[in-house]
């Protein structure tokens, strides 16, 4: 499958990444290269095979509905680039 410049820009937008004009061609080339290789999966003899969901056979792994308070609340906010009144501060978002 051929990837267009518009597509890669759309994808970068979904991923919240900026691509500089001069980088786009390199990213496009690399992505195309890798996708061409990855396309092998479309030739694999997988007729009738189910998709693997989960690497092991674990199922119904549940937790009891019991409260455990995290012991170091302060540390959870210690890495914040900007905070105010114990909240993470960001530029104004209009909802």
């Amino acid at each position: 499958m051929k990837v267009s410049k518009e597509e890669i820009l759309h994808i970068a937008k979904l991923a919240n990444l900026n691509l500089k004009e001069e980088e786009i061609d390199t990213y496009l080339l690399h992505l195309q290269d890798i996708l061409n290789f990855a396309n092998i999966v479309n030739n694999a003899p997988v007729e009738g095979l189910k998709e693997t969901i989960g690497t092991n056979k674990n199922y119904n792994v549940f937790r009891k509905d019991e409260i455990i308070n995290f012991e170091d609340n302060e540390a959870l906010l210690a890495n914040a680039p900007e905070k105010e009144r114990n909240m993470f501060k960001i530029p104004k978002v209009i909802q």
Partner: peptide, 17 residues
Amino acid sequence: YYDAYYKKAQQVRTLVQ
């Protein structure tokens, strides 16, 4: 593209196993 890549890859995963 999900079906052509991700979904296929998950099937190949079953094949490899």
